[in-house]
Design a binder for these strands. Structure first.
Length: 276
DNA sequence: AAAAGGACCTGGTGGC
DNA sequence: TGCCACCAGGTCCTTT
């Protein structure tokens, strides 16, 4: 479910409540996520406090005085802050209780997410060290993408969703940024001129920043850490608008699959063959 | 080496 | 009401 703006929304919400609070109790569900939750996690966390909360792509890094808790929300994950006495609900796989009245609840019905622990620099952690550049980093530029693309035949939508190239853009925002840049999602990446990459890169930055500002996109169940829905779904131009008309030119939008993921675009605003 | 396809899961929806 | 097929904000592994 969550892409960069949703994860960032959750990061900011957590930061406001749990920073520097002492951990009094930890409850771990035994079921496996993408990996098993470390058996000794409670021991590692107990009596510590979270010093900083960072984000790398779609990963949250909760940095303690000793070690880092690494969290990924997969497709259906969320983190809520609830009063400790609030009854445990289904699929809450990790509950961290603080010495005050609050608790952090990690919930992930589909269990594609990840909860892990590292004593080392998290940038050396397997899943994180292979990540590409952050899209909101100044070093993420048209020239950067253009250079990478020269030996890639993949279609542009797959390229911008490739976490090794640029991390954090998922299925919703991929369709949205390509519409904004008037690039057809099926266009081979190496056929797109630099000029179009400039438009694309600025569309990516602009749309991600706006989505963060609006608290992310709530299609089904994304919320911030207090349970509030996002507002970017009201700004979606193509994603989820099956058989509806383009807001810009009134043409019926096309829905297709690219590597098994639903893809939406306007055949008139985003013609194939001409990337502008 | 790169690309395609399947696997991993639960839950919601729409058709019959 | 039930059953079934299909869909979903992601990643990883195997096969071509």
């Amino acid at each position: 479910m969550p892409e960069l703006p949703e994860v960032e929304t959750i990061r900011r919400g957590l930061e406001a409540v749990v920073l520097k609070k002492t951990i009094a109790n930890v409850l771990v569900n035994k079921v496996s996520l993408r990996l098993p939750i470390p058996k000794d996690l409670a021991k590692k966390l107990l009596k510590q406090s979270i010093q900083r909360i960072e984000r790398r792509g779609k990963y949250l890094l909760l940095k303690l005085r000793v070690g880092t808790l690494i969290i990924h929300l997969g497709m259906s994950g969320n983190i809520w802050i609830k009063p400790k006495q609030h009854p445990k609900t289904k699929h809450e796989h990790l509950i961290i209780e603080f010495t005050n009245q609050w608790s952090l609840r990690y919930k992930d019905p589909r269990r594609f997410g990840l909860i892990d622990w590292t004593d080392q620099d998290p940038n050396k952690y397997q899943a994180i060290k292979s990540l590409g550049i952050e899209p909101l980093d100044k070093k993420f530029t048209a020239n950067y993408l253009y250079k990478i693309v020269q030996n890639k035949k993949t279609v542009i939508k797959q390229l911008i969703m490739d976490n090794k190239v640029v991390t954090g853009i998922g299925n919703i925002y991929a369709s949205e940024v390509l519409f904004a840049a008037k690039i057809n999602p099926l266009q081979p990446a190496n056929q797109i001129p630099l000029k179009s990459y400039k438009i694309l890169v600025s569309a990516i930055k602009r749309i991600l920043l706006l989505a963060i500002k609006l608290g992310g996109t709530t299609i089904k169940d994304h919320t911030d850490s207090y349970g509030e829905a996002g507002k970017f779904q009201n700004k979606l131009q193509v994603y989820g608008r099956k058989k509806q008309l383009c807001f810009r030119c009134n043409t019926e939008l096309i829905t297709t699959k690219i590597s098994q993921r639903s893809t939406f675009y306007c055949p008139r605003c985003q013609p194939n063959g001409s990337s502008h």
